[in-house]
Design a protein around this nucleic acid. Structure first.
Lengths: 217, 217
DNA sequence: CGGGAAAACGGACCGTTGGTCCGGATCGCG
DNA sequence: CGCGATCCGGACCAACGGTCCGTTTTCCCG
């Protein structure tokens, strides 16, 4: 099952708006969201973000989110389908910005810099992103194993990494290598390294750069 | 909280056996398991293994395991504490054998072969291991995020990898590199690659060998 | 502006599942 | 054999994700 990329933009409306006079079941835009619906979507996202920020992970139930948002539990589920999807929506929101910078931002993240530099800059940025909402990623992974890999965001990271790698080494199995490289940014691993193994950010970044260099040389 | 490595060997007995005459609260061996207890532990492990083999992952509840083992639910929990621990025990059982081969088996896995070869042989073996009970690993990861990294088995893999890497490149941050390399064997990633991205075993193995080579050169 | 159908709301309700508890059966040592 | 320690088992509990449906809100159209 392929999930829509930007859940915030394409709501899961139950039915299509019946086109005025023509009977063709046009597969165009889904019916726009009603005012109260989109208001509540915002409230829910905000509440969820807030709660996840303070209490971590599994401590936040769907009902809590509903209460914090001042909304019924049913509403939360209708808007987001299930817990996993809510978490995904939350992540998505934050990850879109990085994607924007990748495609159209200034070098070295955006186009223009040497490929090698873009790659390390990208990994750095991903690491930053994880610092910010690693908890969230972690939580999302518990509800549905492997969910991360089915995300639009992951697909984008992978695509980007693959292209950069392929440019450095046209002979390589760039797609696979990209996956293996991104594995180093697994939320569980990073959490473990930071919290149990006491690896600081700088050391981690160095290790990642080294890894990327060796993979692209 | 550090969990005992071999759950199967050191049962979680509720109390210590009061030492015969000396009053010192000696912290030695815990009381040995009673006959019925250890018999049931076996029955439970077997049942769990069987069930996980056919039905996958989340389809198996603790109660199912209990019934299949012909045992009360309470017994399962008393023996293993919680779901995560049961899964860990199951994994542990299978992983010990590989550890044995690493330490005392024939080359190239065991001592004797060139370091580089031992490393790739090891990764190959890990991949094999995952083929066999990847489902199990996946399931265990859902119940407690990051559990894998707190396992004795993971510590062993890491230790082994680190030593081999350090031997190849004494200047490297071997510990960190070992973690990053092992990340490529993450259960979720492997599952994704095999099932969604249709990467076959051979290609995967090649990729891993390549990665290892580049990290140790 | 008013009315009515479509859509959304909300919270009571349900089923499942991990985990606990305790009266009674078992074990094993002396 | 006898008796305390240990373990058994399944009824029981609480929590949580998810559903349902009577009520309210929206918004389109005349």
């Amino acid at each position: 099952m392929v999930r829509l990329w930007h859940t915030a933009v394409v709501p899961r409306t139950e039915s299509m708006s019946p086109m005025s006079r023509v009977e063709l079941p046009v597969v165009g835009e889904p019916a726009p969201e009603r005012a109260d619906a989109s208001r509540n979507r915002q409230k829910i996202l905000e509440a969820a973000r807030r709660l996840f920020a303070q209490r971590g992970l599994a401590e936040v139930t769907m009902e809590t989110v509903a209460r914090e948002a001042g909304v019924g539990k049913g509403t939360v589920f209708r808007r987001f389908g299930d817990r996993g999807a809510l978490l995904e929506a939350l992540l998505d929101e934050q990850e879109r910005e990085l994607q924007e910078r990748l495609l159209r931002g200034p070098p070295p993240l955006g186009p223009g810099a040497p490929t090698r530099d873009r790659l390390t800059a990208f990994l750095d940025a991903l690491l930053d992103l994880w610092e910010q909402h690693g908890k969230l990623v972690l939580a999302s992974e518990t509800s549905a194993p492997g969910a991360r890999y089915r995300t639009g965001a992951y697909a984008a990271w992978h695509q980007h990494t693959m292209l950069l790698l392929a440019e450095c080494r046209p002979d390589a199995d760039a797609s696979l290598d990209a996956h293996l490289l991104l594995a180093a940014l697994d939320a569980q691993l990073l959490t473990h390294l930071r919290e149990e193994a006491a690896v600081d950010r700088e050391r981690l970044a160095r290790g990642l750069r080294e890894l990327a260099t060796r993979l692209s040389a």
